[in-house]
């Protein structure tokens, strides 16, 4: 996957988000009143390290899932549309093994994407803005070293958040030989999940939606760290991985490869 130009182009695009964000903030002298604009945005000028957090927050609803869906939707359907799937299977590569390897590959991409967001944000923030000890949402102040640790935890949290949608994408990818279809379907499901999550009438459903805990990474930015949402998120994502992983396997293991 990392031999493909597309993968690098997507990572570059991901890196562009914090860069654009930082320039936009730096070039407009206007001071935002605290609370105006997306959360954290006002903090960016005071501390460059917040750029990464803000960029992650901005990328989460759409941009990050979009790149994730491209990678996940491509897993099996991409191989099928190229015809390389049949050659992999007769190499032979076991079907279960292929699914697992493909899935791990997508997780590696998610890890790369979330860390790219954070690292690019940290770097551009450090260049354009002063950096220093970070004031957390709880008002406490943590050292530079510790805040870098927090950045890593947030990126890791976001990666975990993506495992569910990656499993969904993998499953959809086993259903078709048209990778674009699988990618689009995965994006659509992400959108639907987020919309449902915003309807108060469906509050009973919210904690079951795979997007529900995505933005709760803010809990990492409290002192002491609140890991409750991390745990529920991980558990929920694990559930999605188990269900859609099983669906993907049951579909793929019996599928006639006719492409």
């Amino acid at each position: 996957m990392f031999t493909r130009r597309r993968t690098w182009a997507m990572l570059a695009a991901v890196a562009l988000i914090p860069i654009l964000l930082a320039f936009a903030v730096a070039l407009t002298a206007e001071e935002l009143a605290p609370g105006e604009g997306p959360p954290f945005l006002s903090q960016v000028t005071q501390n460059g390290l917040f750029t990464g957090f803000t960029a992650t927050l901005l990328a989460l609803p759409l941009f990050l899932p979009l790149t994730i869906a491209v990678v996940a939707g491509d897993t099996i359907a991409g191989e099928a549309s190229l015809g390389t799937l049949r050659y992999l299977l007769i190499a032979p590569v076991g079907r279960l093994r292929l699914l697992v390897v493909k899935y791990i590959g997508t997780i590696v991409f998610a890890l790369a994407a979330t860390f790219t967001l954070m690292i690019a944000g940290g770097i551009i923030g450090a260049i354009l803005f002063p950096i220093g000890p970070v004031t957390l949402l709880s008002g406490d102040e943590i050292s530079l070293a510790e805040s870098i640790g927090r950045m890593a935890i947030v990126s890791f949290y976001t990666t975990v958040s993506m495992t569910g949608i990656l499993a969904i994408g993998l499953f959809i990818s086993t259903l078709t030989t048209v990778p674009v279809g699988a990618m689009a379907a995965t994006v659509v499901l992400t959108g639907v999940s987020q919309i449902l999550d915003n309807l108060p009438q469906l509050s009973w459903l919210h904690e079951w939606l795979f997007t529900h805990y995505w933005l709760d990474f803010a809990d990492i930015l409290r002192q002491p760290i609140e890991l409750g949402s991390f745990a529920s998120n991980a558990l929920l994502q694990l559930g999605y991985v188990a269900v859609f992983g099983a669906l993907a396997y049951s579909r793929f293991s019996t599928k006639d490869i006719l492409s």
Partner: peptide, 16 residues
């Protein structure tokens, strides 16, 4: 399968 070499319905490779 390890003892079998095959060409099925034309070759297929990663173009990139």
């Amino acid at each position: 399968l390890p003892k079998v070499g095959a060409l099925v319905e034309g070759p297929a490779f990663y173009p990139y």
